[in-house]
């Protein structure tokens, strides 16, 4: 004869109507004799009854509104893609013009050397002030020292990981998070702690 523990595992499927007829009859027989399991089954039935009664309220126009919103997003995406395609030949042409102009200045005009030297000085100034070597903008000193100079390393890690997991644009995070879908809270917390130090 099965112990109550075994019936406890079958009761959720008994309540949802997903047991084979043999198992269903066995559970029925046991419930007649065991008040504890009967109470357990009634609690599970009460929970599933609330779920089955629940109806999601939706605006009748939601479907049409969704289609409009999606098409707008997709149109915007394709416009940007087209624009991006146009920029490639435009950029190549612009670069060719710059190279030809610079070469002709070096070769023909002595005064051009002076102009190039001035341009170099300007570039050097930019490199060591607010722009990187590849034109990226560096963070201003004032932003770094904006009252947050006493942040600990842990705070910085937490902030960075928080940003990474919160940013839906970073799709690689999805595959890591999907792999944790079966973990209970305690194990998940361990993974996140590990992630905090290893992802960076």
């Amino acid at each position: 004869m099965k112990a109550c523990k075994d019936y406890e595992d079958l009761l959720p499927l008994y309540v949802s109507g997903d047991l084979s007829s043999t198992d269903h009859n066995k559970v029925n027989e046991h419930l007649k004799e065991c008040k504890e399991c009967r109470d357990y089954q009634l609690s599970l039935s009460a929970i599933t009854a609330v779920m089955e009664r629940d109806v999601v309220e939706m605006s009748p126009s939601y479907g049409a509104e969704l289609v409009v919103a999606l098409n707008r997003r997709l149109d915007r995406r394709s416009t940007w893609q087209k624009r991006l395609l146009w920029t490639i030949p435009a950029f190549a042409t612009a670069m060719a013009v710059v190279v030809i102009t610079v070469i002709s200045l070096i070769k023909t005009e002595p005064a051009g050397n002076q102009w190039i030297a001035e341009m170099d000085r300007e570039r050097d100034y930019l490199n060591f002030t607010d722009a990187g070597y590849f034109g990226e903008i560096l963070v201003n000193d004032s932003d770094i020292s904006n009252g947050d100079t006493d942040l600990s390393t842990d705070d910085l890690y937490r902030g960075a990981v928080y940003h990474i997991v919160g940013n839906p644009q970073i799709s690689d995070v999805d595959s890591y998070l999907l792999a944790t879908a079966n973990l209970d809270d305690e194990d998940f917390e361990k993974v996140i702690e590990q992630l905090k130090y290893e992802i960076l």
Partner: peptide, 24 residues
């Protein structure tokens, strides 16, 4: 379902990291 699971995981991860207001 995959989109939903990832959304829930991201939310939970943010809560564990400790910067969201909800304390699990």
């Amino acid at each position: 379902v995959n989109t939903g699971i990832n959304y829930l995981r991201r939310q939970k991860a943010r809560q564990y990291i400790g910067l969201d207001s909800v304390d699990l």
